[in-house]
């Protein structure tokens, strides 16, 4: 029994941690390309999730086959357009402003996106189904197939990003833009396109994250608030400059959270977990997989 409980808590932690990881990967991608921390990533994910939810609801009501799949594809298309629009309207005009200025723009985006979502979709909280429903009993373990799908998705997205950055021409362009935008431009890299594409990719990742998180939070304008905060912490813990970092960071937070909650105290769960994380960061200030940022000259 004791071993089952231990493993059950690990599985629960892996699922939650994967959600944090999924939410963090988009933030890290934008950061790596432009040094900008997109504080609106969570709200953009929420907005995309509302669109996905709307498509899902109408598809079901219309009796269309595979409404979830239709909604998923709709989410990808919408979030690509949404990400490009945000970059074109809000980010590109501020290309020459300071990093702080750009980050303030993303703070403004939080209010704009959240307010728009409330005005368009309302303020109620809605149920959204899991990607794969139901539960399975394996031995005495309760396993949600959705959990493994979320873990799988996080790992796949991480691997794709990792491969793309290292092995494709576009990855080279991203790295060059991240290293020195002006020099990259002089070398023929279309840095404007690179930035726009990273925003599109990050927004798509946000939409996928939102869709996976929705069954655990319901769809509402506040659905990403806590998850987004924890995804940032996951990214900082793992290292903001790597793609594997946020995934490992997210999983560590998820697992530690459950183990501390079960074996030590649910009252002090949050305090203990984040206290330990701060201790880790004292010894690894750039995160577990991060590296000291090189000064651009």
């Amino acid at each position: 029994m004791a071993r089952i409980i231990f493993i059950q808590n690990i599985i629960g932690g892996l699922e939650t941690g994967s959600l944090y990881a999924l939410a963090a990967l988009g933030v890290v991608l934008i950061y790596r390309v432009s040094d900008v921390t997109n504080f609106a990533q969570g709200e953009m994910a929420m907005f995309s999730t509302f669109v996905t939810f709307t498509i899902w609801t109408y598809s079901r009501a219309a009796g269309l086959p595979y409404p979830y799949l239709i909604a998923f594809i709709g989410a990808l298309i919408f979030s690509a357009i949404f990400g490009y629009s945000i970059e074109r309207v809000f980010i590109r005009p501020t290309a020459e402003s300071s990093l702080l200025g750009k980050m303030i723009v993303t703070f403004g985006l939080i209010l704009i996106v959240n307010g728009s979502a409330a005005a368009i979709f309302g303020t109620d909280s809605y149920y959204m189904q899991r990607a794969i429903g139901g539960t399975m009993i394996i031995g005495n373990l309760v396993v949600r197939p959705h959990s493994f799908f979320v873990i799988f998705l996080a790992l796949v997205i991480m691997a794709v990003l990792f491969y793309m950055i290292r092995n494709t021409m576009f990855g080279v362009a991203i790295r060059a833009t991240a290293q020195d935008r002006e020099t990259a431009r002089l070398m023929g890299v279309n840095t404007t396109k690179v930035t726009a594409f990273t925003w599109i990719m990050a927004t798509i990742m946000g939409a996928i994250a939102g869709l996976m998180i929705a069954p655990a939070t319901n769809v509402s304008t506040g659905m990403m608030a806590d998850v987004h905060l924890k995804s940032f912490i996951a990214a900082v813990l793992g290292g903001f400059t790597s793609f594997i970092g946020p995934v490992i960071g997210g999983l560590i937070i998820g697992i530690m959270d459950n183990l501390v909650g079960y074996y030590i105290s649910t009252n002090w769960q949050t305090v203990i977990v984040y206290g330990i994380l701060i201790l880790i960061l004292i010894f690894k200030p750039y995160g577990l997989f991060g590296s000291r940022p090189q000064k651009k000259v």
């Binding site: 629960g12 655990a216 649910t266």
Partner: peptide, 20 residues
Amino acid sequence: AISYGLDRTDFTAQIQQVMV
């Protein structure tokens, strides 16, 4: 008597305690 924080999305630890 098992508490939980308002920021939780995963109640595995709490529900395991109830099961015990």
